[in-house]
């Protein structure tokens, strides 16, 4: 297979979905329902990514206490609810993760 042809085609099918809505911005008026739906994109997609990366570890469901990612995520969730502050949330999550990692070494 021609590797460079593959890269060129990959570049096209990666760039087009990224650019198409940007290109059309201001030129087309989206239906009101679609506009409202797009408001949910960050919550929907990022939450789906969080769920999979937190609870699926090594290709399997991990709901045990040994899943430090899940415990750190839970701590970060509480911190985010209380502080609503990005950097504080990250700090709490990382400290909990680092602390548990040290304890379980």
């Amino acid at each position: 297979m021609n590797d460079w042809l593959l890269i060129a085609l990959m570049a096209v099918v990666t760039f087009v979905p990224r650019y198409l809505p940007f290109a059309l911005a201001g030129r087309v008026k989206l239906p009101a329902t679609l506009e409202r739906g797009l408001d949910f994109v960050p919550v929907a997609v990022l939450t789906a990514i969080i769920a999979q990366t937190t609870l699926i570890r090594g290709g399997e469901f991990d709901l045990t206490m040994g899943n430090l990612h899940a415990i750190a995520a839970a701590a970060a969730f509480v911190a985010a609810l209380v502080t609503r502050h990005l950097f504080l949330t990250i700090a709490v999550g990382l400290l909990v993760f680092g602390g548990l990692k040290l304890l379980t070494l």
């Binding site: 949910f40 919550v43 929907a44 990022l46 430090l68 995520a73 990250i90 999550g93």
Partner: peptide, 25 residues
């Protein structure tokens, strides 16, 4: 990758304002 998880949580949670946002999440 825990850094990504907690950063995404810090971004999503403050965006959960309406009942619909919580349902969506």
């Amino acid at each position: 990758d825990v850094a990504m998880i907690v950063a995404f949580i810090g971004i999503v949670v403050p965006a959960l304002k309406r009942r619909a946002d919580w349902g969506c999440a």
